[in-house]
Design a protein around this nucleic acid. Structure first.
Lengths: 198, 198
DNA sequence: CAACAATGTAGGCGTCGACAACAATGTCGT
DNA sequence: ACGACATTGTTGTCGACGCCTACATTGTTG
């Protein structure tokens, strides 16, 4: 008995495990309930250990935001590519974004929370990359003459605003989960129609 | 000397003063930095006193949310009334909402944070009233034949989503404060155009 | 293999939210 | 007028938290 599994002094993968557990907690109980000490306990490490990887709580939150943007970018590019029509891919991408926003609403909030974050920091850069992935799709539509304008900025803003609005509707339980994809697709089609040159 | 102003044992207006100071703190430093104890100190009362008015921290936040919705409703109805054309008043109301959302972004976040709030509670009811004020304006447009549809629900969703999106754009510093009113007005006009019967 | 860096532990500090026991004040029925 | 009772504020305590420092263990590298 008492064959306690001896954890080595050095955990070996602490940073990653902390982040994953943290993301889980944020998803289920929200940012406010995320505590470094609880995290340490759950991973089976002393309360001071996380400090070696995250100087303070905000650093952990930043790391979570960074991962969030990276995942978001992956999901956007995955939805944006393919052989389907431009409009279809726009709609798919929109759905992907809104899905992310509803499934991980607390994480998204955290991602955009850093109003006073360093504009040159890694988080901001990751955010830019994710946004660029969307922007590229719009630019493609403009290049192929399916969308008005030369710069993707103005339609980009419009699309962005619409997505954000739809996401907030979904999170406010005004639109139920099941109907969400349809609503988003419709809105996107309408939007594209409005932005089509004539 | 030592003519210390003797505060009476009973403050007399503690609840209100706590709420006002709390709103100030939320506005300037965000919800996370709001502490009952600091609040008590600033108002010059012992750390246990606020408990008589707010059983726990969340109760204070709920009270703040309630006030927020009441103020929002007032600002919406103020913008929605008047002799101007329906379209103009729609635009004004939109500007009023987005202004609120940007000036008091932390408060707005708090107002919508209660995802698991009692749907029959006072906060939710106040939120409904504020939303209704907007809905009424849309219904008026439908009654006078300037907007499609019979029920205000569908266009209401659209308007709501657009406003929320514009607000998030503004809060993300993607649109600068000065240009905001113009952008909102334009978007609203475009939206109304799209919703006009033909 | 001996410095040195990286990583984890142990303990302490100040603050917080929540709670309970008690004190001062307001209110209301008789 | 006065005594019971409710309301409101005070004080002290508890456990948890974030952050800090001193120290222990392990990995790395010249």
């Amino acid at each position: 008995m008492s064959e306690a599994v001896v954890r080595p002094y050095h955990h070996g993968n602490l940073r990653e495990e902390l982040l994953e557990r943290a993301e889980e907690i944020v998803r289920t109980r929200g940012v406010a309930d995320l505590s470094l000490r609880e995290l340490a306990r759950e991973v089976g490490v002393s309360h001071g250990a996380p400090r070696r990887h995250f100087p303070d709580r905000q650093a952990l939150l930043d790391a979570l935001a960074l991962r969030g943007f990276e995942r978001l970018e992956r999901e956007i590019v995955a939805a944006a590519k393919g052989r389907a029509s431009h409009t279809t891919r726009m709609a798919r991408t929109a759905v992907a974004y809104v899905r992310f926003a509803t499934r991980d609403s607390a994480l998204l909030e955290l991602m955009f929370a850093g109003k006073h974050r360093d504009p040159d920091g890694p988080v901001h850069e990751a955010a830019d990359r994710a946004f660029t992935a969307m922007s590229d799709l719009i630019a493609e539509g403009q290049a192929s003459g399916q969308l008005v304008g030369a710069d993707p900025e103005k339609p980009g803003m419009l699309v962005w605003a619409t997505l954000q609005g739809l996401a907030s509707l979904a999170n406010g339980a005004i639109v139920d989960e099941a109907a969400l994809d349809g609503v988003v697709t419709d809105a996107m089609h309408g939007l594209m129609l409005g932005l089509r040159p004539r």
